[in-house]
Design a protein around this nucleic acid. Structure first.
Lengths: 167, 167
DNA sequence: CATCTCCTATCTATCAGTAGATAGACGACC
DNA sequence: GGTCGTCTATCTACTGATAGATAGGAGATG
């Protein structure tokens, strides 16, 4: 079933964003989805395969959401802040690649590469969008850090305080 | 031996900052230090005990280092940036509490509390130090995010770019 | 001084539980 | 009949944790 595959990706994304790569098991996902762990291996032979797929889907959706907000008339910074903020508000969770980036060691290299790719792309895109391209790294870092703090302290207001100055 | 206890804390800090709470085992630490895993349990009965001790020591040293830089004449922001930057440059590693904060779920509550305490204290201290107290959260978030990006991308220059504007 | 006792720090050995992963059987669907 | 998706059952490796033994030092007692 295609539904199972999506459900596995959903469950994996939720668990990674909550507790990181080493914070969940195939059995956890199987229980979340309502299948047996062997079935998870059927769809994603290894944990690396699975997490790479999660990261790619996350990244794709993320940049689509930014574009969508911009075509609604938001400024680049508002669009980026909006996407991060919604993720925090709706899911009460960290950025997937932020979590993976934090635990870079002890990650299969393929997975670490996906996190890197997400960041590299973000900096590139922001550089093209901003009036001052040199601010791209600053803006991105502040958004990631704001998410980290807000998530850890369990308070979305922290995110708003940390990002209010961006513009 | 007191040396063993310190060596265990050192090894644990290094491993956590590299790969997070779930990214290492007692046996890993035992090998790092050159003892058996039962000896690690002798000094720190549970993994929670150990990581709480690591987090407290890290926090204490961190805030001492900030004070030291300030009494050398650095501005508050330069002191904070300096401590983070040195950690990144010397150890090529993330902020311990940043890593723990990212994987908040799947952490024993005692450990999550230590990360929270580190952040809360940081925001408080910065609020008192800055001319504009409202910037405390912004500054802290930017520093953490800058570390995250720089660490993941393996490039200290990213940290400098992300934090140059702070003042 | 010699001995006895206690404590510290470590070891070996082992536990139950869980990790990621695989083989092979079963039914459903085209 | 073949492919797809799931199952049961199992494997090996590793996890955090514990039990019990041992060596060596500190301090008191005789």
């Amino acid at each position: 079933m295609l539904g199972t595959e999506q459900a596995i990706l959903d469950a994996a994304e939720r668990r990674i964003r909550g507790g990181g790569y080493n914070g969940f098991s195939f059995r956890d996902l199987a229980e979340d989805v309502g299948v047996k762990s062997a079935s998870v291996h059927y769809h994603f032979p290894t944990k690396t395969d699975l997490v790479v797929a999660v990261a790619r889907r996350y990244s794709e959706r993320f940049y689509e959401a930014v574009e969508a907000l911009k075509s609604d008339g938001s400024s680049p910074i508002d669009a980026w802040r909006g996407v991060f903020r919604e993720a925090l508000r709706v899911d009460d969770q960290m950025c997937l690649c932020g979590v993976l980036g934090a635990e870079t060691n002890g990650l299969p290299s393929e997975v670490a590469n996906e996190a890197r790719a997400f960041f590299t792309r973000g900096i590139e895109v922001l550089s093209l969008e901003l009036d001052e391209p040199s601010r791209a790294v600053e803006v991105f870092a502040t958004l990631e850090g704001a998410m980290l703090l807000a998530r850890s302290l369990g308070d979305v207001a922290i995110f708003d305080q940390a990002t209010a100055h961006l513009g």
